[in-house]
């Protein structure tokens, strides 16, 4: 399997397992996950994300066969264009992760548009991270609503040639984005927070087509068994199961 959405690093609000490369690799081995697309979790809150992206690069450079890095950018912070260039030139990164909600901008603002234009110019895959975990459990001083689906639908429609992975979105959110978007060929979604209703994976495949659905865990925030069991239990064809588990991610990320 290929995990399309994972992190290394720590989360400020609770203790987690699988935060280091060694621990994450061990868990991946347990579940038969060959590769994972990873970002640095601390970059949700760091201001200087280049420091975090450098930490990520250093942490995984000896495991390039298992980890594909996704650098994090905040287009509201000065110098993001130069940081982007360094991530590409010095770290060889080619997947961009955005957290519009935690970083305080909307995708349809000048900042949002500029970073998506940059991604398009470089031919990146953009991971649009909708949330991190259930908003009902957030720290009382850090309540961050998920990125609105309508905003994502507008962005993917405005950039029909830019490839998007919708990450950590729930079932209804994904189907909403899909139906609201005027272009859908450039949309994929991973299933880490698709945790219902029953039959959710089958229904996603019916709505989007199995070619657009990817295995993802949101490690270390969620237990990866949720996504693994969802695929195992889904009543889909063997061919579609392989696409979701691996084939679609291999195609999207060029693995």
């Amino acid at each position: 399997m290929i995990d399309a959405n994972a992190y290394l690093g720590n989360w400020p609000f609770r203790q987690l397992r699988y935060t280091t490369p060694a621990a994450l690799l061990g868990k991946m081995d347990d579940l038969g996950i060959e590769k994972a697309v990873v970002s640095l979790l601390e970059n949700v809150f760091y201001k200087d994300m280049l420091a975090g992206n450098r930490t990520l690069h250093t942490a995984i450079k000896d495991h390039s066969d298992r980890f594909l890095p996704a650098f994090t950018l905040n287009p509201t912070f000065p110098g993001w264009e130069e940081d982007l260039a360094i991530c590409v030139r010095d770290f060889g990164m080619r997947v961009m992760r955005l957290h519009p909600n935690y970083h305080g901008y909307a995708l349809d603002t000048a900042e949002g548009t500029a970073v998506l234009e940059a991604a398009h110019a470089h031919g990146f895959v953009v991971i649009l991270t909708v949330g991190i975990e259930d908003t009902r459990h957030h720290h009382p001083l850090v309540k961050v609503p998920d990125v609105p689906g309508a905003q994502i639908a507008a962005a993917v429609s405005a950039f029909p040639n830019l490839r998007f992975l919708i990450a950590a979105e729930k079932f209804a959110g994904i189907t909403g984005i899909w139906t609201q978007s005027s272009h859908t060929e450039n949309i994929c979604a991973e299933i880490s927070r698709v945790q219902g209703p029953v039959g959710d994976i089958e229904k996603l495949c019916e709505t989007m087509g199995a070619d657009h659905v990817l295995f993802g865990t949101n490690l270390p925030l969620h237990v990866p068994e949720a996504a693994a069991l969802a695929i195992e239990h889904a009543k889909v064809s063997a061919a579609d199961r392989r696409k979701i588990a691996q084939g679609n991610a291999a195609r999207l990320f060029g693995l």
Binding site: G196, V198, D200, A226, L229, H233
Partner: peptide, 12 residues
């Protein structure tokens, strides 16, 4: 369930 999948909850 059925609002939540058995898979996700068994995973806990």
């Amino acid at each position: 369930a059925p609002g939540r999948s058995l898979s996700s909850q068994l995973a806990k």
